[in-house]
């Protein structure tokens, strides 16, 4: 067997073959519709425990910061969180800190609110988007009506029963930040740093590890990280959704990544070994 040729063909493999493997690793598990089970982590249980403190009539602020690009990862969290809040009879004030995700969030909450027969203006309100995250976070503490004279739908905030008497963070029993970017950091600095408001977070996988240190310092009470975090939360709520369903595809694609890294390195080592042997 011509080993040098075999090794050379592995290292020079067409990128489109790798793309095909990735596509198959995602598509096949989805077609098999296998539902995975996960063991909740301490951080996810702390997130759930934070929401469990809510009672009938409590008001929760949900701050979302992601665009459609991160929707598959963070929408399941928003869905599960809104369901959890509505099931407990609590009320939801939602705001968006990413312009591109604004329509997405409203549509999601709208669906859940309809499912649980919640009335807009009484049980939930969507404030919409404002630029400058630090200013929005700080302004919500003192003058929410000045920053948001109207909600996203054009209603006067002072005329909606839920927001008419909203005066700042003391009116919120919990703040939940669902984020794929730097606004989670702004919430830690400007929200918790200044007002010590109780906060839980749902973060995309890319930023999750960097925020683990804020969980240790209790600046964030509990955190869901990536699809796995969303799946754990769905499981805790006994609400099997997209996250649990996608976890098998996620597993298989992770294995493909591991295999590609290992094969890539073996082929490199083999090339070096063959080169040395031929000298």
């Amino acid at each position: 067997m011509d080993y040098p040729a075999v090794v050379a063909s592995i290292t020079k493999i067409d990128r489109r073959f790798i793309y095909l493997l990735v596509g198959l690793a995602v598509a096949i598990p989805l077609l098999l519709a296998h539902q995975a089970e996960v063991e909740p982590t301490e951080e996810s249980m702390a997130f759930h425990a934070g929401v469990s403190t809510l009672g009938e009539g409590d008001v929760v602020l949900l701050s979302t910061d992601y665009h459609a690009g991160s929707a598959s990862e963070l929408n399941p969290m928003v869905r599960a969180f809104a369901t959890d809040v509505f099931r407990r009879g609590a009320r939801l004030v939602v705001l968006s800190l990413n312009a591109q995700g604004t329509g997405l969030v409203e549509a999601e909450i709208n669906k859940i609110a309809a499912e649980y027969d919640r009335t807009y203006g009484v049980d939930w309100v969507f404030l919409g988007f404002r630029p400058s995250t630090p200013a929005v976070i700080l302004a919500l503490s003192a003058s929410p009506h000045s920053l948001f004279p109207q909600d996203f739908r054009g209603n006067e905030l002072a005329e909606l029963p839920l927001t008419a008497h909203l005066n700042g963070y003391r009116d919120f029993s919990l703040i939940c930040v669902i984020s794929s970017g730097a606004t989670a950091q702004d919430w830690v600095i400007y929200g918790h740093g200044r007002f010590q408001c109780p906060m839980v977070a749902g973060l995309s996988g890319g930023i999750g590890p960097a925020f683990q240190s804020f969980v240790d310092t209790h600046q964030i009470a509990g955190v869901l990280v990536g699809l796995r975090g969303a799946a754990e939360y769905e499981q805790m709520l006994e609400l099997p959704g997209e996250a649990l369903r996608a976890l098998f595809a996620q597993s298989l694609t992770h294995m493909l990544f591991v295999a590609l890294i290992v094969i890539g390195n073996i082929s490199l080592l083999a090339t070096r070994w063959i080169e040395n042997a031929m000298r």
């Binding site: 990128r15 790798i18 793309y19 990544f257 590609l260 890294i261 890539g264 390195n265 490199l268």
Partner: peptide, 15 residues
């Protein structure tokens, strides 16, 4: 990006 990350993992993630 997943496709590009997978390709990069194969070609560039080296010891």
């Amino acid at each position: 990006l997943v496709f590009y990350m997978a390709s990069a993992a194969f070609r560039s993630f080296r010891l």
